[in-house]
Amino acid sequence: MTETNTHPSQCAGCGVKLQTERSDKVGYVPAAALERDPVICQRCFRIKNYNEASTLTVDQNEFLRLLNQVGNTKSLVVHIVDIFDFEGSLISGLQRFIGGNPVVLVVNKIDLLPKLVNHNKIVNWVQRQAKEQGLKVVEVVLCSAKQNVGFDRVLAALDQHRNGRDIYVVGSTNVGKSTLINRLIRDYSDLDNELTVSQYPGTTLDAVRIPIDDGSSIIDTPGIVYEHRLTELVTKKDLQKLMPTREIKPIVFQLNERQSIFFGALARFDFVQGERQSFTFYASNALDLHRTKLEKADQLYEEHKGELLAPPSKEDLDKLPKWTKHAIRIPRGGQKDVYISGLGWVKANAEVGAEIVVHAPKGVKVIMRESLI
């Protein structure tokens, strides 16, 4: 956008620099809205007029700059993560940026897990994983934004831990952050107040402050884009197949060593060595899994990628980074998952151990972890 003397360069609501090109980025304002007085960005406009926030994104460096400023405040930080992509959506190193501020960890999309899963065990698992990442959490709350389950507990946790402080809501893309913000606006906010300019003189937080009745604010921060998640690398049409929308039905394969399973043409799981055993695959049921022998896997991929092995389509294959290999040794005893960020995980029912190789687009996070289920 070309700035002129007649149009302001900053949003009168949140102080962000205005731009007219990208509606998915912070500061967007339709060109026609520049004639309004005052001029506010589309996100502030939606909050003010419709009581709802929209999801916008910033890159990692911008997001970390924003988080550093949170450390200078006395606030409650609400970190929203996706249980289907827990490690991929957890903000790495969050604690060192936010200082001593308490964190409520809101775990969304709990409706995707099989109904018989024990929620107390999931909470304990999340607490252990968060502790491993150095995150001090005052409470873990499970919820489903889509099913509107668990939000009363989220609100109760915020009331319990807030003590009159501002609430910063942080999360990566596609975790359901805007749904939670919209619920908070409805429950807490007095929108007769104006959206307020950032309290930090001379800085743009790229964050919208939504006044609460008691004089403090909910601060809606943009979503952070993590490119170690497969969901950030695929096309929008493939994203719909990749992200489950309903309860996952796990698929169990009894595998002999030197057998492979393809996740379409998105990734491949090789059981290289070990006794015959079962592996349980947790992924979107819209995604086709295809079994073959390891010695035939490369040829199958070359001949059928984008067709029998899809998504992605042939046209979209080149948009993904080339595959890289991840060798994983699953020890004897103990339940372990092989997790592929944005795609799902494979539970090894390994009393006997196994040698695994995962092929996934370069940069996508692939790790072994304690079994979630």
Rank of each mutant, 00 (worst) to 15 (best):
L195F: 11
E194C: 03
Y168Q: 02
R209H: 13
Y168V: 02
I212P: 01
S189T: 13
R186S: 14
N182L: 10
N163Q: 15
Y168F: 15
G215W: 07
V170F: 00
S217Q: 11
R165V: 04
Y200E: 15
I212T: 10
L180N: 03
G176F: 00
G176C: 03
T196D: 04
D166W: 15
N174G: 04
S178N: 04
V175Q: 03
R186G: 13
I181H: 01
R209W: 14
I167D: 05
S189N: 11
Q199Y: 07
V208Q: 02
R162M: 06
D166T: 12
G164W: 03
G215C: 10
L180F: 06
R165T: 10
D166C: 09
S189V: 03
G215Y: 05
T204E: 12
N174L: 03
T196Q: 11
P201H: 09
I167F: 10
V170P: 00
D213M: 14
Y200P: 13
L191Y: 04
L184I: 14
A207F: 03
D187P: 05
L180Q: 05
L184M: 15
I185R: 09
T173D: 04
I185L: 07
S216A: 13
H161K: 09
D213F: 12
N174A: 13
V175W: 04
I181D: 01
P201F: 05
S178F: 01
R162G: 08
H161R: 09
D190Q: 10
R209L: 13
R162P: 06
Y168R: 03
N182C: 06
P201C: 02
R183K: 15
N193Y: 14
V197Y: 07
G164H: 05
I167R: 09
Q199K: 11
V208R: 00
N193I: 07
T203R: 15
S172I: 05
G176D: 01
G164M: 07
I181S: 00
T204R: 11
D187W: 06
I167Q: 12
E194I: 05
Q199T: 14
V175C: 02
D192N: 07
I185E: 10
E194H: 12
N193T: 06
D206C: 07
N163C: 12
D206Y: 11
I167H: 10
V169C: 06
T204Q: 09
R165F: 05
Y168H: 14
I185T: 09
K177G: 00
R165H: 12
V169P: 01
K177M: 02
I212R: 15
R183T: 13
G215H: 08
S216V: 06
I167E: 04
I185V: 15
G164F: 05
V175G: 01
I167N: 08
P211E: 06
S189Q: 11
I181Y: 04
T203P: 13
S198V: 10
P211K: 05
S216H: 12
Y168N: 07
Y188Q: 10
D166H: 15
